[in-house]
Nucleic acid binder design. Structure first.
Lengths: 215, 215
DNA sequence: GCAGCTATCACCCTATCCGGGGAGGCCCTG
DNA sequence: CAGGGCCTCCCCGGATAGGGTGATAGCTGC
């Protein structure tokens, strides 16, 4: 059975040349080509493609919204975005909206068939720079509430008190004053804290303390 | 300035051949090669690489844990995973742990230099099938939690860069070096940051920056 | 009692930071 | 073109932090 492909692109020439290009592959079948995405969900529902090739820049509803709409209504359909510019936020947005991959327009001739095949076999073609953005996004989400093996730095109670003061932005003098100990004692504690946290400055200690929720 | 690379692989032959391969690239410099990851954080801290090449299968701590440890301690370091099998859950896990990309071992000869270069320029080399998994993960998370709007301190781009360096624990000198500006310029920026954040020390600035998610 | 840990304090010297100036160049806007 | 951000660089002097070393005292557990 052949792979059914639908095309959305407002440029007629591109629609036609893509159709022509894909028709050279026996296992591909172009089942629809549309110049706008206003009725994209209906269009897709009607021509039943396996894969949709979507221009990211489209009149009316943008390609990004179209991806969202299609994926919401027909989640089994894979969408491959095509765009002129790389590293655009729109590429990233469309991936978030549900696109399965993307391809640069001026790579259409050389990479389109390859990209579609990758899609077919469960891959997501994308450039390394977009991949990086995606990774960044993935890593910044609150990691599945893993108790986050709170690395135990074995700080003593006193050291935690001092650390808390440091995070407040107090100077050694002020800390000494607040804890009614001498300046030198504060220094001793700080030195120990540095050892235990493996840091070498107040700023590092503050960053670590906050990130690891020591304070 | 050359790109500093450290290698973690338990196979001596591989370590040596990678070193040999990378030494053919003038702009690369192998600054360390280690057979295990037990002391990886210290090793990395010591040899100060820009990029770490990490075998995913390692004795002792696994390469995945090692990535997590390195990224936690030294978040500015990029880690490129190398693995024998593709489409392995471990690849995905290591990406979640903070790896910036990965490469198949039997592509080392042909793709290693290319992959490292991609890393260097902010890309994340990975195969389409892994990319797909990453996308799936990204899309399944509930569309992101809106962080309660932080007060706008009207920091300029440059000031935010400096602030980010401060949070990393860098000294003025190191910041000057990284941003290739003079020490005094860094000071100027810091003064402005102090004004805008209404703080008077690095520690306060770090605490505020982290809490208000400015960086 | 002694070893081990914590908390306390001290001194010396250097590195780094902080505050308060001044100043030139660039680009944009009114 | 005048002013206003912004980025860049510089000087000075005082304040603060950091590294190294050492010391006393209390508390704990074997």
């Amino acid at each position: 059975m052949s792979l059914r492909i639908a095309i959305f692109d407002d440029n007629r020439n591109i629609r036609e040349s893509i159709t022509l290009l894909l028709s050279t592959v026996p296992s591909f079948e172009v089942v629809g080509a549309f110049s706008h995405v206003l009725d994209c969900v209906d269009d897709v529902r009607h021509c039943k493609p396996d894969i949709v090739l979507m221009d990211i820049e489209m009149p009316g509803m943008t390609g990004i919204e179209a991806v969202g709409a299609i994926r919401q209504e027909l989640p089994h359909i894979q969408v491959l975005m095509q765009t002129v510019f790389e590293d655009d936020d729109r590429v990233f947005d469309s991936i978030c909206a549900g696109a399965s991959g993307y391809i640069l327009k001026n790579h259409l001739n050389t990479k389109l068939v390859e990209s579609i095949t990758e899609l077919q076999y469960g891959g997501s073609p994308m450039s390394p720079s977009i991949a990086r953005k995606v990774l960044g996004k993935l890593q910044q989400i609150p990691q599945h509430v893993k108790p986050e093996e709170a690395p135990d730095y074995r700080l003593t109670v006193r050291e935690k008190e001092v650390l808390a003061c440091i995070v407040e932005g107090l100077s050694y003098k002020m800390i000494a004053d607040r804890l009614t100990i001498s300046y030198e004692t504060v220094r001793s504690h700080v030195k120990k804290i540095y050892e235990k946290l493996h840091v070498a400055s107040l700023t590092e200690a503050v960053a670590k303390a906050i990130h690891q929720r020591i304070v």
